[in-house]
Amino acid sequence: MLSETTAFLLFSAIALVGAVNVVTRRNPVHAALWLVGAFLGVAGLFLTLGAGLLGAIQVMVYAGAIMVLFLFVILLLNLDTTPFEGLSIARGASLLATAATVALIAFPFARARELRAAAVPDEPELPATAGNIASILFHQYALPFEVVSLLLLIAMVGAIHLARRPRRDEPT
């Protein structure tokens, strides 16, 4: 049986190695496959956080559906390895700005003892079971839930419209 710390270190190593390779691989197919690794690592982290349902959804939606979509588009476009994207001064500067941003995010995170102190004290602890999540989704978060369903519909219509081949007689 894996101890929780071991599991955390293992899964976070998987996620970080996957993420580094997503950013550095020149072949987009390789980047997409490393992205699967990163997603699976994050799914493992969800499990160590006690959110089994989210881990399963992460594997199904991200590692399944979204990755298939990425690979499908890459194969459809028949892309070669992208030419070397050199490190210009502007890009080096933007990477420096990235490092500064991350440091600014990480510093208060590293000092955060517990986020619980700011929370409302007398609320019942609801474990992240499917039943509890569903009851929150359909009571407290019913309006955002409906908005998200509308968002998905809009995204679907928009995607079909954007990807559709224009007809001969209509201006592009």
Binding site: I66, I136, V148, L151, I154, H161, A163
Partner: peptide
Amino acid sequence: HVPARGSACALFVIAVAAAEVAVGLALVL
């Protein structure tokens, strides 16, 4: 704190990510 509520929020993020990928890949095409 309230684990189920965090899961519900993360579920919204996943739905937004799915919508973003669908539109984004259509844009790439």
